[in-house]
Amino acid sequence: MSDKLRTRTNINKVIALSISWQRENLLARGLGLEHLRDLLLQLARPILRTGASLAYAGNWLEDEGNFTFDLLRLISAEQEDNSLGGPDTNIQLGLLYNHSAWPHYLKVTARIEAQWINCCRIVRITQQMAGICDPDFVPDQEATTESARSKFNGAICLSAMRRLTMSPLVLDIPDAPSILIPAIEARIIMGGKVEGFSGFMPGLFEEALVTLEHNKPLFILGGFGGGAQILADGILRSSGNYPSELGLEWHKEKSMNFARFLDETKNFNLPTNVDSSERAFKKLVNYLDKANSDVVSTLNTGLSTEDAIQLLTTSNPHQAVKLVRKGLIALGLLPSA
């Protein structure tokens, strides 16, 4: 291993990437999937070279816009060969943490997990881990049904998964030492769909919310559309108002499925650590309000006010990468050049 190439300053630190491709959003800004891949590589590689791990909650389908395999291939290329008993044999290298909530993890086969076991740790968030009580458990074989309980439990698990990523998590392994999953140290978000989600609120919003609640750095690349731009608009409020997508009513009007889901599950009990949709949207708006008056300490990115605002608005991928790196350096999560 070369000290010039890699440091071990960030071992056991995890940086989350919430980045998704939405064709129209990007194309309207003159960019395509290729630009997003470039951006992801430019962000992820220097992070990995500090010994840190990445968290990305993508699925395991080989389709465009899912960056799970791009990240795995990158990690694979970055890992030294530590299989031959050389000096690096016992050094823990950065991994991809793929947090996966019930019932989504049921689709992850042993073969997939085995193929990528040296690059990736799949963290399954079960109904039990999500705080769902025994009588309300839905058996795995009924997970795909459209029953209200199944959808409700799925939403709870998604919510719990996002919350659990923010604290260290110990996974008990039968007859073997337990595994520690480190907490997420900072999150970088970009794009993100705000319609057609399956939880209590759009995933990107909830990820931003839990990051803000834990006062961890939140890099919002708002110039590329999607949920991140809505959050940026919610902070900057250049039009004077909050974007309507930040209100529960907008989502109920926009999506009959979501309105029906809320109606069907209104009498179900939520675990104490999971917020209802209404409460979650209110909390998010409060944080955006706070960021509006003090963007530096609320987003906590290590950037100056001017740079933080530029990151919220720029649609230039190089500028965005430059600013995120600058923030990570200021936070001590990347070495200075």
């Binding site: 070369s2 190439l5 590689r45 990995l48 070279r49 290329a77 970055e78 890992q79």
Partner: peptide, 14 residues
Amino acid sequence: GQGLAGAELDILYE
């Protein structure tokens, strides 16, 4: 470019 892969750089540094 954006940088060589870790494995390639390892060889060059060696």
